[in-house]
Amino acid sequence: MNSFLKFIGLFLLIFFAFLPLQAQKETSKSELYLGAGAGTLFSKMDFVPGVPQVYKQGIFSGISAKYISEKHLGLIVELNYVQRGWKEEFDSSTDFSYSRTLNYVDIPFMTHVYFGDKTRFVFNAGPQISLLLGDSQKMSQSLSDNLDERRANNPEARIGMQYEGMYDLSKIDYGLVGGIGMEIRTGIGDFDLEGRYYFGLGDIFTSRRSDKAYFSRSASRVIEAKLTYYIRIF
């Protein structure tokens, strides 16, 4: 709980630090909204060398702050709890299965562009930083037995380097996020429905040669759909 409160404080501090950068002389036109949202996502990892995968479904939710500095332009900052990761694909003739869930706090900082009045077309894009809270994995017993056998037969081979215990996970991830959607303004608040794509630039596993890295690339790729409810503060 203390860690979560620290993240809330950091979120608000960064958001209000950005307000002067967005503020204009005509302050009467400025608008501030606070909101809460949730959605679903589908994630993979960009592994090099490649690992066959299908999209892993997850969920996310959090709080948002939107500051409109002038007509058609503003800033959005969010604090979201996110479940992403990867799910591997195996030959249908086997009963192998493996998936890994990575739990993050995501903090995107996005430029907000909109067009329209009561119904608006919106475009959001910007950088995102993520803090890893923890992870879990699910591996079938048959896959576990197969890995043990292969490693015993070939101790020098680097088999299953993506599995738990082979590498430590990076605690910080970063990348770029962008999305498009629609905003509906009503008497009880605003509803934003948006589709997003996150392109991770950081690697979850080390890629340094000095660490005898196996993967030269291990970055997140995430498709998201989110619904956010906003209320206007001023």
Score class of each variant (00 low, 15 high):
210 S>T: 15
178 G>Y: 03
178 G>C: 05
206 T>H: 12
159 I>C: 06
204 I>G: 11
163 Y>L: 03
218 S>A: 08
193 L>N: 13
149 E>C: 03
222 V>P: 07
145 D>G: 03
183 E>D: 10
204 I>K: 12
163 Y>F: 12
199 F>A: 13
159 I>H: 04
174 Y>E: 02
204 I>C: 07
175 G>Y: 00
203 D>M: 08
157 A>V: 01
158 R>K: 11
151 R>A: 14
192 D>H: 10
159 I>P: 03
217 R>C: 07
152 A>D: 06
193 L>Q: 13
191 F>D: 08
190 D>I: 05
182 M>N: 15
144 S>F: 03
178 G>M: 05
164 E>N: 10
151 R>C: 06
187 G>I: 02
158 R>E: 04
205 F>P: 04
181 G>D: 09
163 Y>H: 05
155 P>R: 08
190 D>Y: 08
202 G>M: 03
191 F>H: 12
184 I>T: 12
199 F>V: 14
216 S>G: 14
196 R>K: 13
211 D>F: 02
200 G>W: 00
206 T>N: 07
149 E>R: 08
157 A>L: 02
199 F>R: 13
150 R>K: 11
165 G>Y: 02
195 G>C: 10
175 G>D: 01
215 F>W: 04
164 E>H: 05
201 L>Y: 10
175 G>K: 03
219 A>G: 14
193 L>G: 10
210 S>E: 13
195 G>I: 14
170 S>K: 15
203 D>T: 06
167 Y>R: 12
144 S>R: 06
194 E>K: 11
192 D>M: 11
215 F>I: 01
219 A>N: 09
147 L>G: 02
197 Y>M: 10
197 Y>S: 13
218 S>N: 09
156 E>H: 05
195 G>T: 09
153 N>S: 14
222 V>N: 15
175 G>M: 01
221 R>A: 09
161 M>D: 07
187 G>M: 05
179 G>Y: 00
163 Y>I: 01
165 G>E: 02
172 I>Y: 08
157 A>T: 00
175 G>A: 03
223 I>G: 11
207 S>P: 01
160 G>N: 05
200 G>E: 03
157 A>R: 00
170 S>G: 15
187 G>S: 10
200 G>C: 02
212 K>F: 14
187 G>W: 02
201 L>H: 14
219 A>P: 00
219 A>M: 09
189 G>N: 07
202 G>S: 15
212 K>G: 13
171 K>R: 15
198 Y>Q: 14
209 R>E: 15
216 S>E: 08
224 E>C: 10
191 F>G: 13
203 D>C: 13
155 P>S: 08
